[in-house]
C-alpha cells in the first residue's frame, strides 16, 4: 500500500536535513506505529507524505502503485491519503459541515461518483456520528475555531470517517487528551480499521497502543528509523526511554 525508500527531506532554501533516509513498508490493512522523541521528524514525515510545501524531498514513495511525491496535496487526498493533523488549522468563517461536504464531493467527483446533496450528506453524517459514538455539537461551527484540543482531534477522526481514506496518517492524535477523550479517539480509530485501510499512527506515548494494537512499531530518531519491531518494542521503550534505546 505504502512503500517508502530512502526518503530525505530538507527545509527548502538551504535549510537543514530533517529526514535522513527513511525506509518503510506498510501493507494493506496494517497499522504501523511510529514513535520517537520530540523533534525527531515525525510531523515532517507526515507532512511530506501529505504534500506540505517548504521541503526539498528526495527518495521514492509509492502509494497504491503510484508515485506519491509527483502528486499535488489535493490529488493525494482524493486518491485516499488522509492526514490527521497534530495541530488542526482553524478556519474562521468556514462552516464545518460546508467544508466537509466540499471535501467529500471533491473526492466523489474524482472517483466519477455523483455529488451528495444536502439531504444525502446529512444522512451520511448521522451514520458516521453513530459509528464513532460522538455528538454533532461541532458540526455547525467554523472549522476548528475555538475547539478544545480534544474537540480538534475528535473532528479529525470524524473527517477521516467521512472521507474513508485508504491510507490514514495520524499525527499525535492522542496527545493532549484526557483519558475519556483518548478512549473516544481510540475507539474511533479501531472502528475505522479495515482490511483496505492502512494506518500510520504517530505517537509520542505508548498509552495509545494500549487501545489500538499496531502490527508494527518503529522508532524515529534524528530523522532515521532506528528500530522496528512488534508491539513489545513499545513496551521496551516505555521501560528504557528513547535514550536507552539509542544507546543500545
Amino acid at each position: 500500500m505504502l512503500s517508502i525508500k530512502n526518503l530525505r527531506a530538507k527545509v527548502a532554501d538551504g535549510g537543514r536535513e530533517i529526514l535522513k533516509g527513511i525506509d518503510l513498508e506498510v501493507g494493506p490493512g496494517e497499522v504501523h506505529a511510529i514513535m520517537g522523541p520530540n523533534g525527531s521528524g515525525k510531523s515532517t514525515l507526515a507532512g511530506v507524505l501529505a504534500g506540505r510545501a517548504g521541503y526539498e524531498v528526495s527518495g521514492t514513495v509509492t502509494y497504491d502503485g503510484r508515485d506519491l511525491l509527483a502528486m499535488s496535496t489535493d490529488e493525494r487526498a482524493r486518491a485516499g491519503v488522509f492526514l490527521a493533523f497534530q495541530y488542526p488549522v482553524e478556519i474562521p468563517g468556514v462552516n464545518n459541515m460546508y467544508f466537509l461536504r466540499a471535501a467529500l464531493n471533491a473526492v466523489r467527483r474524482s472517483r466519477g461518483e455523483s455529488e451528495l446533496d444536502a439531504g444525502q450528506f446529512l444522512k451520511l453524517v448521522r451514520q458516521k456520528l453513530k459509528l464513532l459514538e460522538i455528538s454533532d455539537d461541532l458540526l455547525q461551527r467554523p472549522v476548528n475555531v475555538g475547539f478544545s484540543g480534544g474537540e480538534k482531534k475528535r473532528n479529525e477522526i470524524f473527517q477521516m470517517a467521512m472521507l474513508e481514506p485508504k491510507l490514514a496518517i495520524l499525527d499525535e492524535t492522542d496527545s493532549g487528551l484526557d483519558i475519556d477523550a483518548l478512549r473516544l479517539v481510540a475507539n474511533g480509530i479501531n472502528k475505522l480499521r479495515a482490511r483496505d485501510r492502512s494506518m500510520v499512527m504517530i505517537t509520542h506515548y505508548q498509552r495509545l497502543l494500549d487501545y489500538v494494537e499496531p502490527n508494527r512499531v518503529h522508532v524515529l530518531s534524528g530523522g532515521r528509523i532506528v528500530a522496528s519491531g512488534d508491539k513489545s518494542l513499545a513496551l521496551e521503550l516505555e521501560a528504557k526511554g528513547y535514550a536507552g534505546l539509542e544507546a543500545a
Binding site: 501529505a50 504534500g51 506540505r52 510545501a53 499535488s72 496535496t73 489535493d74 493525494r76 487526498a77 482524493r78 488522509f82 492526514l83 493533523f85 488542526p88 488549522v89 478556519i91 474562521p92 468563517g93 468556514v94 467544508f99 466537509l100 466540499a102 471535501a103 467529500l104 471533491a106 473526492v107 474524482s110 472549522v143 473527517q159 472521507l163
Partner: peptide
Amino acid sequence: EAQLFYLRSRGIPEPEARRILVEAF
C-alpha cells in the same frame, strides 16, 4: 498558507480552496 493546505489535504482542489477562503473573508 496553513488554511489552504488544510483544505487541500482533504481533497479540495486549490482553486476551490482559495474560493472558500475568499468567501469566508
